[in-house]
């Protein structure tokens, strides 16, 4: 469904417009990958030339070769830091999914629960996590757990809010039909509200994936500062104190890479779950 059919070789009398469209589609398929790759190569080249020709000192801006060299040299350190950040982010995301979905289900089952607790979910969301992080550090012994809570707070709201809307968005006639057939609450949730909420939930998951990483990075900046040696962001901060800019950039690139991988994964999950039926995942012919 995602891969367009190959152009028919000996199509009988394909009209000119259709031929142009086919050719355009083929060009687009190639350009989709080559253009961004080209931009990346050119940017790295420009970066390299700027640093070497302009004789920029490495503590202001290290060249791409130095960053690569440092990444190889520090690989052991960077890899273990990345594992910590990855674990932090994924755990926070998993907790956000469980907490967000559970609370959304509770909200749709009980209006009273929603009225009572939704404002506090909003407060949790709008309070900047960077202001909360130092407090968590005081009240929670484990730096990892404190960072986890930070990342969870930022990641959970989009899932809660999207899933709540999704659960309520089921077609009204279908809801009536379920009433006529005497569906139980559980059946309604499982066969109607759940599937109807899925595209909304997955939209929330994509946002939450990025936010969980941001939350983890913020938490590491604030909490990792106390020498607890958390993940990539702590490494980055520490490298900046030591003017080790090669390592700093290597850590930065790994954080970006992690973000990209998380986004790609959540997009893939979303595509796989929706491709059969949801408009957003269906490729149109013309």
């Amino acid at each position: 469904m995602t891969i367009a059919d190959p152009a028919p070789v000996a199509a009988p009398a394909m009209d000119a417009e259709e031929a142009v469209r086919q050719r355009q589609a083929q060009i687009n398929r190639v350009a989709k990958w080559t253009l961004p790759s080209l931009v990346m190569v050119l940017s790295i080249l420009a970066w390299h030339l700027y640093v070497t020709i302009g004789e920029v000192p490495h503590y202001i801006l290290p060249g791409p070769l130095l960053v690569a060299q440092q990444a190889v040299e520090d690989w052991g350190l960077l890899w273990s830091a990345m594992m910590i950040t990855t674990r932090l982010t994924l755990l926070a995301l998993a907790m956000a999914v469980i907490g967000g979905v559970a609370l959304a289900v509770l909200f749709t089952q009980s209006k009273w629960a929603e009225m009572s607790f939704f404002p506090y979910a909003v407060i949790l969301q709008v309070t900047p996590v960077i202001a909360v992080a130092p407090l968590l550090q005081i009240y929670v012994d484990s730096a990892f757990v404190a960072a986890l809570l930070c990342a969870w707070i930022v990641a959970f709201f989009p899932i809660l809010s999207n899933t709540t809307i999704g659960l309520k968005s089921a077609d009204h006639n279908l809801q009536d039909l379920f009433s006529i057939y005497g569906a139980s609450r559980w059946q309604r949730l499982r066969y109607l509200q759940g599937p109807a909420a899925l595209p909304f939930f997955l939209g929330g998951l994509k946002i939450a994936g990025g936010l969980a990483l941001i939350g983890a990075v913020v938490a590491e900046f604030v909490i990792g500062r106390a020498g607890t040696g958390l993940g990539l962001a702590s490494t980055l901060l520490e490298a900046s104190y030591r003017f080790n800019f090669g390592r700093l950039y290597a850590a930065l690139l790994l954080i970006s890479g992690l973000g990209i991988v998380i986004f790609a994964c959540t997009s893939l999950i979303s595509h796989l779950l929706l491709r059969k039926w949801h408009e957003s995942a269906i490729k149109r012919d013309v």
């Binding site: 009536d176 057939y181 599937p195 059969k276």
Partner: peptide, 15 residues
């Protein structure tokens, strides 16, 4: 509870 119902829209579950 022993009815069949057809609405103005087909009202099918798209999934």
């Amino acid at each position: 509870d022993q009815l069949g119902v057809v609405f103005q829209e087909p009202t099918l579950m798209p999934w």
